[in-house]
Amino acid sequence: MKKLILAVSALALAATAAFADPIADRQALMKANGKAVGSIAPIMKGEKPFDAALVLEALKTLSDDAQKIDVAAMFPKGSETGEKTTVSPKIWEDTAGFQAAVDKFKADTAAAVAAPPTDMDSFKTTFGKVTSNCGTCHETFRIKKS
C-alpha cells in the first residue's frame, strides 16, 4: 500500500512538473526564438553572407517552437501574474484573437520551412514575413513591466 501511494505521488509529481511552470516554459521558448532570430539577423543587416543551411536551421527552430505553443497549457488562467511574466490580460479577454495570432505564427514559420529561402532576396521576404509576427503579437498581448 505504502509503495502504491509513493508511486502515485511520484506520478502526480511528474505530471505537475511537466506543466508546473507555464511562465518559465513560455519564457524559455521566447528566449530560444530570440536566439534563432539573432543567428540570422546579421545576414539581414548585410554583416554576414547568406547561408542557406544556417537560415533553414533557424527557421526550423522557430517553426518547432511555434508548434509547441499550446495556448491552453502555456497560458492557463492564473498565469497572468507572478514571477516576471509580462503577459497582457488581453490574452484572456480575447483568447480567440490570441489563438489567431499564434496560428498565424505557426503557419508562417511552417511555410518558411517548407519552402526555405534560396538567396538573399527570398531570405529578405521570408525573414520579414516570419518576424512581423513578433511585433504584432507583442503589440497587443504583452505589457512591459520592468
Binding site: M30, G34, K35, V37, G38, A41, M44, K45, T131, C134, G135, T136, H138, E139, R142, I143, K144
Partner: peptide
C-alpha cells in the same frame, strides 16, 4: 538605431505595446 529600424532589441526581443507602432 537598429532597434528603431528593425524593431529588434540587441537580444532579439521585439518592440511591443504602443512602441510597436512607433517603431514602424
Amino acid at each position: 538605431a537598429d532597434y528603431l529600424e528593425t524593431g529588434f532589441t540587441p537580444d532579439f526581443d521585439s518592440a511591443g505595446g504602443t512602441m510597436a507602432e512607433v517603431q514602424r
